[in-house]
Each structure stands twice: as structure tokens, then as C-alpha cells.
């Protein structure tokens, strides 16, 4: 029986690695300390593999064929994709994958009525590169990435993502190899709107409301109120990335999480922060 040793969600905006220095000093410190703490918690859980869920910024899932979830089956990943190198200010890296874990998840979710697409050629932009370089700078924990469709409607609903998370947790516990230690890491959000009407604004009130729901374990309310419309009102083409956070929240059965950090970083055009479930 494999074990879920860490359940976490973090924002992944490119400003964290690309232009953090233009943020107010206190916000820089808040994020440096916060992401250092999140990284320490993740690494100290000694995962054998990170199962990551993140929005695909229409980099892998084309507009003519956009599955809700697509899992990566490669044995090794290289990032960032070349065009994103200078934007992210992240050196090229490679990180291991785990094809057997990925394929087992596909097979087992099929049996539970959840179809994940799968492929071995996923490219990473900020979605996984920023969390990996900040949380696991040695790139020494293999990653099984799941790219989600959060920004090409129709997208999976929050309840759907929550249910997928619960099913993934069940698969981890019952179908992955005994003794395997799995970390579940969602990345995306918080409020932002790349290219949309609120491109240069964030919605701090929304971010604090959403984090409050997670902190209080108010999953039922979040599932009822975090409609696509509500998420889009806080950032049309970006805030729906928080759908990814419902996956670990579902895996944690709607439990309370600890907000490790939050900063309303308008200079990054994105509210930034991270949470961990016990």
C-alpha cells in the first residue's frame, strides 16, 4: 500500500523566478521564506515521486483536442521548453519521471470511470518549472506531471476535480506499489488574468476568501461557490487554474490546510502563495 506523504498546492507565476526583485521588499521576503518552507516540507516528506497537477497553458493540449487531464508517461523530463528559458530565468534542467506509476494511474482511473489522456512528450513552461526549481532545486525527485485544461472552456468543474483527487488518492493507496511514497502537488493560481481584461490586476479579496475556505476546511462551500463564473470574475483566463487545487483538496477529503504563505504580488500580475494539508 503506497502512501500519500505530502499534499500541497502552490502558485507558479513566472515572476517568482523572472522578476521577483521588482516586488516590494516585504513581499519578496514573504515569498522567499514561504516557498523555502514549502520546499522544506515537501522534501522532508521524502517522496519517491511527485504527482503534479497543473494547468496546461495551451502548450501541450491543442485547441482542437483538449482533454481535461493528460498524464505524462516519460521516464525523464527536460525543461523549461526552450522558448521559455529567458522568460522564466531558469536554467535547463532534467528530472526523472515514473512511467509505471503514470500508466498504473491511467489504468486504475479508467476502472473508476475517469479517463486521463496520456503522452510522453509534454513540455513544461512555468507550470512545473517554477515549482520544481523553487521547491526541489536539485530536481532529484521524479515527477509524474498531469496537465489540466483550466482555461479553454468547457473545463472540468471544481466538484469534478475534487472527485478526481479523491479517486487519485484511492488509487495511490490501493494500486501503487507498497512502500512507495507519493507527494501530491497542485500548481496554479491564485488570482491572475494573463492577456485578459484584468491582466494588470489581481483580486486580493478573492485570494484571501479562497485561502480562508481552504484554511477552514470549508470544502462544501468552496465546491458550491467556486463556479467557473466566480473564478473567472477574479481573473478570466488565470484564476480558474485554482481548479487544480481541488485535486489535492479532494485527495485530503476536504480537510483543512495550513496557508504557508500568501502575498498579493501585483507586480507579478498574480497572487502568490501555497498551502499544505496535514
Amino acid at each position: 500500500m503506497a502512501e500519500l506523504v505530502c499534499t500541497m498546492a502552490v502558485a507558479h507565476a513566472p515572476g517568482l523566478t523572472g522578476w521577483l526583485d521588482v516586488a516590494p521588499e516585504a513581499q519578496q521576503k514573504g515569498l522567499r521564506d514561504g516557498y523555502a518552507e514549502l520546499g522544506r516540507l515537501l522534501r522532508e516528506s521524502k517522496p519517491d515521486v511527485i504527482l503534479g497537477f497543473a494547468n496546461d497553458h495551451i502548450l501541450n493540449l491543442p485547441l482542437d483536442n483538449t482533454p481535461d487531464f493528460c498524464i505524462g508517461t516519460a521516464s525523464e523530463w527536460h525543461g523549461p521548453a526552450p522558448w521559455f528559458l529567458d522568460w522564466l530565468n531558469i536554467e535547463p534542467y532534467k528530472v526523472g519521471g515514473n512511467p509505471e506509476v503514470a500508466r498504473t494511474i491511467v489504468r486504475e482511473l479508467d476502472r473508476r470511470g475517469i479517463a486521463f489522456a496520456f503522452r510522453d512528450d509534454l513540455l513544461f513552461d512555468d507550470n512545473f518549472s517554477v515549482p520544481l526549481t523553487t521547491l526541489t532545486p536539485s530536481y532529484d525527485i521524479p515527477l509524474v506531471p498531469v496537465h489540466m485544461n483550466c482555461i479553454v472552456p468547457p473545463v472540468p468543474s471544481a466538484p469534478r476535480c475534487f472527485d478526481v483527487g479523491a479517486a487519485v488518492a484511492e488509487v495511490v493507496r490501493n494500486a501503487l506499489p507498497a512502500e512507495l511514497r507519493v507527494a501530491l502537488l497542485a500548481t496554479g493560481g491564485l488570482s491572475h488574468d494573463p492577456g485578459g481584461p484584468r491582466y494588470f490586476q489581481i483580486d486580493e479579496a478573492f485570494d484571501r476568501w479562497f485561502l480562508g475556505l481552504i484554511e477552514n476546511g470549508e470544502a462544501g462551500r468552496a465546491l458550491a461557490e467556486c463556479t467557473l463564473e466566480r473564478l473567472r470574475a477574479a481573473g478570466d483566463g488565470g484564476t480558474p487554474e485554482l481548479l487544480a487545487w481541488f485535486v489535492p483538496w479532494g485527495a485530503a477529503r476536504g480537510a483543512k490546510a495550513r496557508v504557508v504563505c500568501y502575498e498579493p504580488t501585483a507586480t507579478m500580475r498574480c497572487g502568490m502563495g501555497g498551502v499544505i494539508w496535514n
Binding site: 495551451i58 485547441l63 521559455f84 479553454v152 494573463p194 492577456g195 485578459g196 483566463g237
Partner: peptide
């Protein structure tokens, strides 16, 4: 797609 608009600006002006 709005997300592409920002990337189009970067294709013209650098990232």
C-alpha cells in the same frame, strides 16, 4: 485566446 495575446507580445518584443 487571451493567453496567446501576451505571448504574441513576447514574440514581437522579447520575454
Amino acid at each position: 485566446h487571451p493567453y496567446f495575446l501576451t505571448q504574441i507580445t513576447r514574440l514581437y518584443h522579447g520575454s
